[in-house]
Design a protein around this nucleic acid. Sequence first.
DNA 1: GAGTTTGAAACT
DNA 2: CAGTTTCAAACTC
Length: 781
Amino acid sequence: MWGWVIAIIFGGVLCGVASSLAMDTPEKTQITTPLSKFEDSPVFNYINSLSPIKPVKSINIAQTFHSLSFGSLPSVFTSPHISSHKETRFLKRHNYSDLSKPDFSSENGNDICKDEGVVVDVAQLYENSAELQENFDPGVSIEESSSVEPPSEDLKFAIELPQTLKCDCGSPDSDPTPRCGTQKDTASESAGTSASLVPFVNKASHEGSPEGQVHLAGLYKIESKQEATECDWESLISDAADLLIFNSPIDAEGFKELFQRSPNPVVGFCTSFNEVHKMQIINTNGSGEQNEMGDPSTQSGETIEQTQMDTAQENLVANEDPNKYMIGNDSKAVSNLHRGMRRRCLDFEKIGARRKNIEDGSSSSSVFVQSDEITTSKNTQLVPVKLGSDSSRCILPGIGLHLNALAINSKDSKKIKHENFSSSITLPGSAPSFHSPTTGQELNESLALVPTERDMDPNDNDIPLVDDFNQNSPKRRGMLFDNIFFVQRRLEGEAEACKRCNCKKSKCLKLYCECFAAGVYCIEPCACQDCFNKPIHEDTVLATRKQIESRNPLAFAPKVIRSSESAPEIGDESSKTPASARHKRGCNCKNQGGVGCSINCRCEGCKNAFGRKDGSASMEMEDEPEDETEASEKSGVDKLLQKSEIQNNDEQNPNSALPTTPLRFCRSLVQLPFSSKGKPPRSFLGVGSSSGLYTGQRYGKPNILRPQSKFEKQFQNVPDDDIPEILRENHSPNSGIKTSSPNSKRVSPPQSKIGSSPGRRSGRKLILQSIPSFPSLTPQH
DNA sequence: GAGTTTGAAACT
DNA sequence: CAGTTTCAAACTC
């Protein structure tokens, strides 16, 4: 018993330190050393000897990241929330492989929660970012890496959370208060409770370790979960906040708020955590697919874990602790927290069910649920959607984290998303949240949280994600960019009806097919024949897509760049033209309008009024007589463009950035002049036709007529410009941020006046700023 | 709705 | 890379 008392004391000390970490104090970096000493100390050993649980050297997950030879993807595309099941898997594989490595064990001796999920999340947070270690001092990095973002992974929930709950609810005290593994609290209260805490501190969680398995099995009946985890829950929580910082500033806020507002941050966190988990359980239950995508190990114990969670939830609900449910007190914080945690279990097909839950759910979680809903809708892959009258039902394709990376801090991005979602998604009772700025951010982050379609695609197993990532595979990058494109597309055509095709011979498995090219499944409105572009043939679709991509990595990339930046070779005058869209890859058209031709175009006798291949572009429009309607339209557009430029300037200067509101986007809307019948030229429709990906995302047709917001322009520009660079092997991690230089776009001629054009410059700055604003991922050097 | 035109995708 | 064929969307009637 003496040993137990000591253990309790130490637990309290650890908790105190951890809590200080949770408060984001400078001490964070110092904790590792004491812990290391502690773990190696004779006392610790003695305690371990007393404990039935065999201690295992904690594993330094931070090294895992090091060991993970992630590809040097540009930080721009590193999304904290990329955590898709698929990537989770491959990251897990990394983890497993790393476990065998001798140097894997932690030198710091921290009670590191060696959870796969942690690896996944963190790894994805730092995804291939070489700078990740530089952004944080070693101690912090360790903490970060050791920290777990429990809700993000089923496995984590299955293992860690149950442990926590076990400690709380299963303790002899039966104390209804959700301790949530708060060693600080429980340790000082009773030995019985502390005993339950022991596993957290000492319990060996070495993966594959028989002892660890046995203990876990005994405690939680998770026999199949080989990834036993030992976790310093305190550090875990404290780190979780930091982790969310990577996910998004908002998430970090949520965590901080949770911790700061609650006298017992841990409790609040755990409670919120439970809440999140609860929601995830709902989602998970709703979708059997989830398990397929997730680690198989999570499946076996899921039911049990769920039951435990339910019990825990009941206990938590019974508890009147105001701090317990942060939703009530601080819905924002909770929603943020949830947002940061909720990254999976999004079964789009279950939207209806969850929507019902939303409706039935308490108002306190409406925002969160709403966000979840949105995320889910985007998360769905290749889900057939009914088009037509009910635009709201048009499933929005999931975006990847890349969107987040691109625009996570872009206020405009938030606004645009807000706008788009508002227009395209109708969530009962969610309207208020939707229109709030916070909601916009949530939406944005929700987007970011959504795993990429490919990553999520359970059938896309043949894609060597691990290898791709490690090898900086262009393919992988291409996939990432596809997601970006998809986002772009979605943003473009979100408000519009979903695509439909009339393919007869292509079986909708070629780029001829608008749906296929857009990365969406054909649906009922399609008049296609022998269509294979359906969920039933998902494998075929994916295989075909991959084949096409293998032939041409840019096959699904946008064919047309819309924005002044897209045509560097064209004079400033042309760049200011309403239809500044340009053929990115060049066209072969002979009589095209709507989309300005670029120097790459092979068109004959180009008379493109919107930009000729020779760069004379809009000059022709000016020279040639135009009908009044068109002329007036143009002038109006110019004015709009001026406004847009002004706004861009505002964005360029973060300091002067006005409070971003959705209205700002509206101001920058540009109506593209299309002559006949208000329809865009046929060729122009191609703008949105390509892209997508079977990211399974369903997005509407490119809304050519729809005014293009500045933000959309931004999105378009980034991917278009970045594709070639990203695909380059020598793309350094930093290069992503440095550039993604729009000027390096293929279309641009060497002599292009880079930056000479105000419009272009502004747009470019917009991109550059938005990226660096990503605090954690942006290289500070 | 059938036929034509058009331009991109696919193929050679 | 260029030329040709195939294809589907846009357009015309």
